[in-house]
Design a protein around this nucleic acid. Structure first.
Lengths: 151, 151
DNA sequence: CTAAATAGTTCAGTGTTCTAAACTATAAGC
DNA sequence: GCTTATAGTTTAGAACACTGAACTATTTAG
């Protein structure tokens, strides 16, 4: 994703983007998850517990594939299956906190390293950065959605 | 990748990170590439042309798998195979500019949207953001490398 | 109460990509 | 010039996750 961008700003952005992806992959590798499974876990973490059917819709997988997906997440101790009390056909899939101490350590290390980075900026500067991050996130989401539509 | 982070700064970072991954995936989907192939293409774009063996080392794939990988990239018009002049056993794999007009359009759209974001900040603020991006990139790379070592 | 619909699981078959090993072509050492 | 090493390709087989369809359990409608 690099040298499509001519100017320095987007070059920086693309370096950052690569680093983000590399970190995601490293975490996924540690958990023994494929990229697809890791992505599904991300959906569960971000959007909270949901039924298997909803997860199927969000991942564009069939019901059968979701069964296997949840099997793998559960086996890795990263998600939980519960029956819905009201409708006992339904399944509630919940992301668990990863119990692997290496994962916890990884997030702790990232957190403290990022805290150190943050400390290098004034509060005002931090607000500027936050605003940029918000705007950039919105742009990326919008562009990704547009791409999906055009595909 | 979401709710591991307690504070707002890292929450923002994780949103940004998700958005980056989503954009990567959307581009990959448009090109009809698997995540692994897309990643390999990224390596080629970022680090420049390299031999098949070097690509194997960078992707942790066997020689045989790289043959298939380069086949797919070449078929998609995203990479080129050339014989090395000095050592004619060697292959030089070069990433090509994607010819698909939708990809070009996607990057153009992203570029101009990001230019608009950038325009919302003073030069001084842009420098702050750039510094933050550089530091964050370094932290992420370092943490990813540490994770890979521990795995 | 029975029939139809719905939620998930299981299973058989398919496609994809990987590894390992045999193979081809080229280079380097002696 | 042989011999050995190296670069990449080919091939056979294994692993894996997916789809679609049959199946089980539960709920809803008539």
């Amino acid at each position: 994703m690099a040298d499509h961008f001519p100017d320095r700003g987007t070059a920086l952005g693309s370096e950052l983007s690569d680093a983000v992806v590399a970190f995601h992959e490293a975490i996924g590798g540690l958990l023994g998850l494929s990229a697809a499974d890791h992505k599904a876990l991300g959906i569960l973490q971000r959007e909270g517990a949901m039924s298997a059917g909803e997860l199927a819709a969000r991942t564009s997988l069939t019901a059968g594939a979701v069964t296997g997906l949840v099997d793998r997440l559960e086996a890795a101790g990263l998600a939980r299956r519960d029956r819905d009390h009201d409708d006992r056909r339904r399944l509630v899939v919940t992301a668990s906190r990863p119990t692997d101490p290496r994962v916890a350590a990884a997030f702790a290390a990232l957190g403290s390293a990022m805290a150190e980075v943050t400390a290098g900026f004034t509060l005002e500067q931090q607000q500027v950065i936050a605003r940029w991050a918000e705007m950039t996130t919105a742009v990326l989401r919008e562009q990704a959605a547009a791409l999906r539509r055009s595909a």
